[in-house]
C-alpha cells in the first residue's frame, strides 16, 4: 500500500527539527547564509537542504498571523519531473512501487545542466535542485533507506508537535479530512492541498498565496489555461515520444 505524509501546518511551531534531522540523516553540509530579515533560513531549498520550514508573516484583521510551511518534495502520484528527466535519460528518476516515493537515481548525473533546469521547471512545486559540483539532482527521497529497513522517515520521527505524520495513504487522507473539520472552526479558509495528486498532503490554515508561491500546483498556474502541473506534464509528451 502506498505511503503518504499528512503535514498539519496548523500544529507547526517552526522549530525546524525536521529540517535539521533531514540534514543529519542524509549527512548534508550546512549552507552559508546571512540575515535576510526573516527566520526562514536558508532562504530557499538547495542541493543540500531537502527540507525547509518557510515563514510568512501577515497582519490579518488587525491580528498578526505567522504561518509556517515545512516545504519538501510532494512525491507526486504522477510526477512531471520523472517524465521530463526520463525523456532525456531513461531511469534517471524512478517511482518506488511499495512506498510511492519519487527517487532520483545516479543516472541524473547524465542530465545536462539545461535539462536539469527543465526538470526543476517541470516541478509544480519548484523543488528539485542541481548540485553544481556533482551534477546530481537533489531532493527529499522520503528516507527510502529507512523505510526499506522498516523505519519511518526522519522528519516524522523528529517532529515534536504532531505536524508530520506518516502512514498508509488511505489513513493519512482520513486523518487530513478529520483534522480539517477541526481546524476550519478557527480558520475557515483552511484547506487540504492537492491531496489527489501527491503523497505529501498538507493542511494549510489560510489561502495558499499567504504561505508562498508554490504551495499548490494550481496556484502556480498563473496565466496558463490549465494547471501548471498538467501544462508541464503535457509539454513532456513529445519529448517522451522522441526519446523513447
Amino acid at each position: 500500500m502506498p505511503k503518504a505524509f499528512f503535514v498539519d501546518t496548523s500544529r507547526c511551531t517552526a522549530c525546524r527539527g525536521c529540517q535539521i534531522a533531514c540534514k543529519e540523516w542524509h549527512d548534508l553540509p550546512t549552507t552559508a547564509t546571512k540575515q535576510n530579515g526573516t527566520h526562514q533560513n536558508p532562504p530557499d531549498l538547495n542541493a543540500s537542504t531537502y527540507k525547509l520550514v518557510r515563514f510568512s508573516e501577515h497582519r490579518i484583521d488587525g491580528k498578526v498571523e505567522w504561518y509556517f510551511f515545512p516545504d519538501q518534495c510532494r512525491h507526486c502520484l504522477d510526477a512531471p519531473c520523472l517524465e521530463v528527466a526520463n525523456g532525456y535519460v531513461e531511469g534517471a528518476v524512478i517511482q518506488d512501487k511499495k512506498t510511492g516515493a519519487i527517487i532520483y537515481t545516479d543516472r541524473c548525473k547524465q542530465l545536462k545542466e539545461d535539462e536539469c533546469e527543465e526538470v526543476t521547471e517541470a516541478c509544480p512545486y519548484n523543488v528539485p535542485r542541481r548540485n553544481t559540483g556533482t551534477g546530481m539532482m537533489m531532493k527529499c527521497d522520503m528516507c527510502i533507506d529507512r523505510q526499506q529497513a522498516g523505519l519511518i522517515p526522519m522528519c516524522v520521527k523528529t517532529c515534536p508537535t504532531g505536524t508530520m505524520n506518516y502512514g498508509d495513504r488511505a489513513d493519512m487522507l482520513a486523518m487530513a479530512e478529520k483534522t480539517l473539520v477541526k481546524v476550519k472552526k478557527e480558520y475557515p479558509r483552511a484547506s487540504i492541498v492537492d491531496a489527489k495528486d501527491v503523497n505529501i498532503v498538507y493542511l494549510i490554515q489560510d489561502t495558499p498565496e499567504r504561505y508562498y508561491e508554490f504551495v499548490t500546483a494550481d496556484n502556480s498556474a498563473v496565466g496558463l489555461p490549465m494547471s501548471r502541473k498538467n501544462f508541464l506534464a503535457g509539454m513532456t509528451k513529445p519529448a517522451k515520444r522522441i526519446f523513447g
Binding site: R11, T13, C159, P160, T161, G162, N165
Partner: peptide, 12 residues
C-alpha cells in the same frame, strides 16, 4: 499516542 487536544507538543 498522539494527544489530539495537546495545544503544541505531542509526546514522543
Amino acid at each position: 499516542q498522539l494527544t489530539e487536544n495537546a495545544e503544541y507538543m505531542a509526546g514522543h
